[in-house]
Deep mutational scan, measured.
Amino acid sequence: MSIQHFRVALIPFFAAFCLPVFAHPETLVKVKDAEDQLGARVGYIELDLNSGKILESFRPEERFPMMSTFKVLLCGAVLSRVDAGQEQLGRRIHYSQNDLVEYSPVTEKHLTDGMTVRELCSAAITMSDNTAANLLLTTIGGPKELTAFLHNMGDHVTRLDRWEPELNEAIPNDERDTTMPAAMATTLRKLLTGELLTLASRQQLIDWMEADKVAGPLLRSALPAGWFIADKSGAGERGSRGIIAALGPDGKPSRIVVIYTTGSQATMDERNRQIAEIGASLIKHW
C-alpha cells in the first residue's frame, strides 16, 4: 500500500482519535458579512469528516447552483462504474471539434489522439474542462443518470439537468442544476469515506481534487503551510461562485467545507476574496 493510499485508508482512524471539535460562531459572522459585502445569498456548511456531524452552517438547506462543483460527483459516478466493471479508466475516447464547448483548455489539445477516461476526469476536476465533463456525462448516460446515481446514494436534493455550459445559467428560483450545502457536503463525505467506492477509487477521487489547479484564489489562499486540501470550485452566471473541499491540518483532511453564493453584482475577484476570507476565519478558529 502506498503512503497516499495509507493516508486515505486511515482518515477515519486518525479522526477518531482527534480531540473533540467545537464550532466557532466567528466564522458564521464572516459568512454573514460576506453576504453584506456581496449583496447576495451565501450558503455555508462545515462537517466533521469522521462523524458527519454538522459543526457550523448557514442557509444549509437553500438551493444554490452547483456550477462546476458537480464534476466531482460526476467522476465519482464514473469511478463507481469502474468498480462495477462497467468502465475502464484506460479506455480512450475520441471526439471532434464539434464536441468542444466553451472553456476546454485540455480537451482542445487532444482532438487528434483523444483522451482516456482517467485523463478526462483529471481534466474535468483539476482544470474544470467543460468538454471533458460533457464527454464523461455521455459515458454514464447524461445528466439524468448522474441525478439517479445521487438518488441511489441517498441524495434526493442534488440534481443535474443540463450539460456544460448551460448548467451554469443560475436563474433565480430555478431548481435545475442545483444542490443544497448540506446535501453536497453529505454526498461528498460519502464519496470520500464511505463504502460506495473502493479504496482505490476513493484515493483516485481525492487525488484529482488535491491536484486542483484553478481554485488557488479561494480556500487555498488562506491555508497555512502543512495543511491538506482537496477541492473543486465552480463559477456561473449572475454572480455565482462555489467551492467544495476536504481539508485539515497535519497533512490530512478532517472536515468537509461547502460554500456557495449566487445573485451578486460583485466582480469575480471580490467573490473570490470573500470566500478566501471565510476560509481564513475557519482556519483561525479551527
Score class of each variant (00 low, 15 high):
W208G: 01
H94T: 14
F14A: 11
A245Q: 01
I125F: 02
L199I: 15
I140M: 07
T179S: 09
L282H: 02
G76T: 07
A148V: 13
E270I: 13
E277C: 07
A16D: 03
L218V: 04
R63V: 07
F17N: 08
E164F: 00
A123G: 06
I256C: 06
T261G: 03
S80N: 12
V29I: 15
V117K: 01
H5D: 09
T69A: 03
L19Q: 15
V8M: 11
A230Q: 02
G234A: 10
T69S: 06
V31F: 03
N130S: 05
S201F: 04
F14R: 01
M1A: 02
D113K: 12
M67C: 13
G90M: 13
K53L: 13
G279C: 09
L38R: 05
P20W: 02
H24E: 12
L167G: 05
M268R: 07
A183V: 13
M268T: 08
E210G: 09
E169T: 13
L247F: 05
K30F: 07
T178Q: 03
D177R: 01
P181A: 07
A276I: 07
V8S: 15
P217I: 06
G251S: 12
G114K: 04
V214N: 07
R241I: 03
S96N: 14
W208S: 03
A40T: 08
G248N: 03
V82M: 06
M209A: 04
F149S: 07
F70V: 12
A215C: 04
R59G: 04
I278H: 00
V21N: 06
A245C: 10
N152A: 13
N272P: 01
V106E: 14
P181H: 00
L191G: 01
M66R: 00
G248R: 02
I256E: 01
V31A: 08
E35Q: 08
L19E: 07
L135N: 03
L160T: 10
E164H: 01
P65S: 05
K190E: 15
A266C: 13
A230V: 06
E62Q: 08
L28A: 10
R81G: 06
A246I: 13
G263H: 07
L247E: 02
V8E: 10
A133E: 00
W227P: 00
G142E: 05
D231G: 04
D207F: 10
N134Q: 05
M67F: 04
L79Q: 03
V78F: 04
L191C: 07
L38Y: 09
N168D: 07
F149D: 05
G248H: 04
S264R: 05
R273V: 10
E87N: 05
L73C: 08
G52N: 08
A77V: 11
T187I: 08
R41G: 05
S281V: 15
E145G: 15
E102D: 15
I93Y: 06
N50W: 10
G251W: 07
C75P: 01
N272Q: 05
T186K: 13
G239N: 05
L10F: 10
S264Y: 04
I125G: 01
I243Y: 06
E102K: 08
G194S: 14
E270P: 03
L38F: 08
L49V: 13
R271F: 04
H151G: 12
I244E: 01
H156K: 15
I259L: 10
E164G: 00
G85F: 06
Q274H: 12
T126Q: 09
L160C: 11
T261M: 15
F228H: 06
P143M: 04
S104H: 06
D269W: 10
D99A: 10
R202T: 14
P181K: 00
L136R: 00
G216P: 05
E210M: 10
M153V: 14
H110T: 05
L199T: 10
D129W: 00
E166F: 13
R162H: 10
D207T: 12
H151F: 09
E108F: 08
P224G: 07
L192I: 15
D48K: 04
K109P: 07
G279L: 04
A235H: 02
S264D: 04
A215S: 09
K71E: 00
L191S: 03
A23V: 04
I11N: 05
T193W: 10
L192T: 07
G216Y: 08
R255N: 02
K30S: 10
T178F: 02
D212P: 05
P165R: 07
P105T: 06
R118Q: 13
H151D: 09
K32S: 12
L205K: 00
T126R: 07
M127N: 08
I171V: 15
V78L: 09
A170F: 11
N50P: 15
A280S: 15
A133D: 00
R59S: 05
N173C: 13
A211E: 14
E166H: 10
E270Q: 14
K32H: 12
R238A: 09
R176E: 07
L218S: 03
E46V: 08
S96K: 10
E169H: 11
A230L: 05
E119A: 10
Y95F: 13
T193K: 15
A84E: 12
K232L: 00
L197A: 04
F70D: 01
A182F: 15
T131D: 01
G251I: 07
L19K: 15
K252I: 11
D99S: 10
D129H: 00
H110C: 08
E61A: 13
G90S: 12
R162W: 02
R59M: 04
R255V: 06
M153L: 14
L120R: 00
S80E: 12
I125V: 11
R238P: 09
L10H: 06
R92A: 09
Q88H: 15
R176F: 09
A215E: 04
A230K: 00
E56P: 00
E119D: 13
I3W: 07
M268S: 07
T147C: 08
T186F: 15
S2Y: 12
L188M: 11
A280Y: 10
